[in-house]
Design a protein around this nucleic acid. Structure first.
Lengths: 356, 356
DNA sequence: CTTAGCACTCCTTTTCCCCGAGTGCTAAGC
DNA sequence: GCTTAGCACTCGGGGAAAAGGAGTGCTAAG
């Protein structure tokens, strides 16, 4: 059977209405829509066809139709009208984002909260590294006779440090040498390249402070491993409960628990290879508990090799048009924000003045 | 009317049973308890008295009794039997805690998760600073001709850093001088002492690199402010939905939303002046939405002026004995864990020595 | 191809009634 | 005087039955 334009129009109407009302849509409701100059009988025939084609479902004989997963898919891919954000909406998103988000991990939490408020759905946000992290620079600071502070500089200009107690005294000159060696051999390389040979090579050229090398390498590897991990936050789970589909407590509980239990932890990885906004309709989810839950996600750029992601979780009946529009706008604004230098640069050069 | 021993015993039994069953408790159920050698009529009389005294309530005439807030209060303060943790329980808590918790903020999240799992209730955990934070040590590292890395060392050996772009070249010697000045004047002092005079004093002695001072001071203040803030995490909200009192979705939604909306953000402050475990019974909560929700909290010591707190949120009918026992054990184990030095302490900053 | 008409389905809501757990009171018993 | 057996009464919960109604598929006419 062919999917005529009229069938598409009917399908779109059914999805639109169902999104709004959460009730099965009957033929009469469709005829009452503007631009639908057919009788209910005609619509009924079309709906019967759409049901046969798998785009609609019937909860029971004497009920209206609801979209099937395939129906939603078609709707998302082809039928839904672009939702235009109102000036108010863009304004309030911008105001929300403007508030300072200093550290990336705090930012992740705040963004989740904002997105959740903007969509009235539980939101996830994450920051993860694409590609391997590396160390940009090593510094060794002599703190006292027998202890050294190791400072690792990451590509995003964050520093990680560790205090190392020494079994024997080291001179500042030793440390200079060692840090030169470290900076020459162990910077800009990914975790995988930290081989035993590399370590030996470093140790040979490390001179008096060679005994420090194993500790340093260990800590460096650990740091890189941590860097590769993803930072995720979820917010607003309770909003699920405002929706009629989650009147059923059991169902709500299952979904919320599976959100807690990291059912979504693979999303950042999934987004890696996606562009734009991705919609996962109900059964397309891998996790069983989310089979009747949809996920909409989009990514944004944090810079420094960090990849941001925001998304929401909601019922398959979710206002995809509105949600994708808002998410995209969020992502865009965030990308812009991170593109701007976050902290004010030093003021114009001032000529040194003589003083005291 | 006097609260005889028998009345207390009856009250305790009612609370115990109601905690277990979530159903109003009738006189017959009480008589069936071991150690209750009275007829149901006698118990009925006692229960009528307890109701008159305000410790019990009757949902409707022909139903059993449920404890009132006052009843729970009395139960928590005087009547409940100590719950002894089984070896299995202590073991599993210890195993859970043993997993490395490196950074304090990650730790906060993990602990919330663990507590939630151990109690089957939503858990809150927080780390907050009592008393003012300070900087333990400043380091300036010359990264390139015109950029300097500022590393602030906090008392807990965490490092915070910032890259400062310079308007003009600075020598390593300039930086040595500046960092010596900073370490001499700006370490170990709280945020409040960062006055304009202090800054001027530093600038006068800072030499060639004086233009860096404002940026450094700004960043330092910001860092200290951040340190003062409380780090909180909530986990396991969905567990509320497993309890019969939250069959009512509206109610669950209200409670969960108010947890999200920081209704609990004052808890760390409240705990400041408390010792041991604090139980807030339903209506004792300030927030209206939590009037029929109880909170149990306890604190633990992280060291370095950081105060940890863990707590759970649940129905007024909550197994206070079990929950307080588990929380206390958690707190104890965590305090112990943080008492072990995780990393060697940083020695005093040493006066600069001539080198090269 | 469209549409009015109609019989039919079956879910939802409402109503009604019964059941029984639990009560308070009274009077008898220890 | 405290305890307890007995009893009439209350009232919510639950299930069956009935009413209501939205929506369907089919047929036949336009």
């Amino acid at each position: 059977m062919e999917l005529t334009d009229r069938k598409k129009k009917v399908l779109r109407s059914v999805v639109d209405l169902y999104i709004r009302t959460a009730e099965p849509v009957g033929s009469k409701a469709i005829t009452e829509l503007p631009d639908m100059n057919y009788s209910s009988a005609t619509i009924r025939n079309e709906m019967a066809d759409l049901t046969a084609m798998g785009y609609l479902e019937q909860p029971h004989t004497s009920a209206g139709r609801i979209p099937s997963a395939a129906g939603y898919r078609l709707y998302v891919d082809e039928l839904m009208m672009d939702y235009r954000l109102s000036v108010d909406e863009t304004k309030s998103i911008n105001i929300a984002i403007e508030e300072k988000m200093q550290k990336v991990d705090k930012m992740v939490e705040k963004v989740a909260k904002l997105v959740s408020q903007a969509t009235n759905l539980p939101a996830i946000s994450a920051a993860s590294r694409h590609g391997s992290a590396c160390i940009k620079r090593f510094d060794l600071i002599l703190a006292a006779k027998s202890s050294v502070i190791l400072v690792l500089m990451l590509p995003n200009d964050q520093a990680v440090n560790k205090v190392i107690k020494l079994p024997l005294a080291v001179t500042e000159t030793d440390l200079k040498l060692l840090s030169a060696v470290l900076n020459a051999t162990m910077t800009e390389i990914p975790l995988e390249d930290f081989t035993a040979e590399l370590m030996e090579k470093v140790m040979r050229s490390a001179g008096a402070a060679a005994s420090l090398v194993p500790v340093i390498v260990d800590f460096t590897q650990e740091t890189l491993r941590n860097q590769d991990s993803t930072n995720m936050a979820v917010f607003g789970q309770s909003r699920l409960l405002t929706l009629p589909e989650y009147r059923d407590v059991e169902k709500a509980q299952r979904v919320m628990a599976s959100i807690d239990e990291d059912a979504l932890s693979n999303l950042p990885a999934v987004m890696q290879n996606e562009n734009g906004t991705k919609v996962i309709v109900g059964p397309e989810n891998v996790a069983d508990e989310l089979k009747d839950t949809s996920v909409v996600m989009t990514k944004f750029d944090i810079g420094d090799g960090l990849q941001g992601m925001i998304g929401v979780v909601g019922p398959t009946r979710m206002d995809y048009a509105k949600v994708t529009a808002r998410l995209s706008y969020f992502a865009e604004s965030l990308s812009k924000m991170f593109a701007k230098p976050e902290s004010p640069q030093l003021p114009e050069p001032v000529p040194e003045e003589p003083h005291e």
